[in-house]
Design a protein around this nucleic acid. Sequence first.
DNA 1: AGTAGTACCCACTTTGAAGTAAGGTACTGA
DNA 2: TCAGTACCTTACTTCAAAGTGGGTACTACT
Lengths: 123, 123
Amino acid sequence: MTQTLMPDVNRAGCPSRVILEHVTSRWGVLVLAALLERSYRFSELRRHVDGVSEKMLAQTLQALERDGFVLRDAQPVIPPRVDYSLTPLGEEAANLVAGLARWVEHKVPDVQAARAAYDGTKV
Amino acid sequence: MTQTLMPDVNRAGCPSRVILEHVTSRWGVLVLAALLERSYRFSELRRHVDGVSEKMLAQTLQALERDGFVLRDAQPVIPPRVDYSLTPLGEEAANLVAGLARWVEHKVPDVQAARAAYDGTKV
DNA sequence: AGTAGTACCCACTTTGAAGTAAGGTACTGA
DNA sequence: TCAGTACCTTACTTCAAAGTGGGTACTACT
């Protein structure tokens, strides 16, 4: 009847792929990692994650909220105040991507050395 | 003199960002995860990672090779035989992204439930 | 009165990531 | 001899991701 018994990221149509793409998206990673430290307001987050446009931040947050990773708390005050935080599910995801982000930060020199070596031999 | 003392993914120009984008790219994640199990030949990998075009697979592998994550072993035989495997650095990265991929596979139902709830309240 | 901050949404345009198709070489099997 | 496998590369095209600039509604500061 149905083909989705066991989700497999290696299968082309598998729903796990789009979820994975949400959490590994350009801004998704950075937003999740930021929210792991503490909750943020919209423009706080925008300042923290250097380079995001308002549109992309809103879009990213919506995708993460819909997937159940992010909790959006909009207080009906003026000026508008919206707090974003992680759900328990989002916290798990954020731990994984933040781990990756931190690892990458540490390995920047190694990668740059590898690139230099690669570019050197390929001339 | 230089601005890159401590890599920070939250800074817009930081080199860590492009590395992160390589390992979290659409096909980068899947390739790394696949190579964690065992080494693969090009077309094996192409069959394993359902949906990749030859072009994207070649491109992805090149980026990962240049960054020092993937080792390319091209034997000068006919027909050509090229084996791809992980470097120690790549293995660390692969463990992290594969962990993420596996986690996502397990959480598919949770995410789908969250989406249903979200879409339900937003009508 | 004018300007800035807040948290967006919408329309438009641009960029770049990815898909499609074809070519190239040297072989093997039908 | 023609198809098929292997591992790509190049050119062309498409389409979604992302950037740009506008508007909203209200307040607080100067």
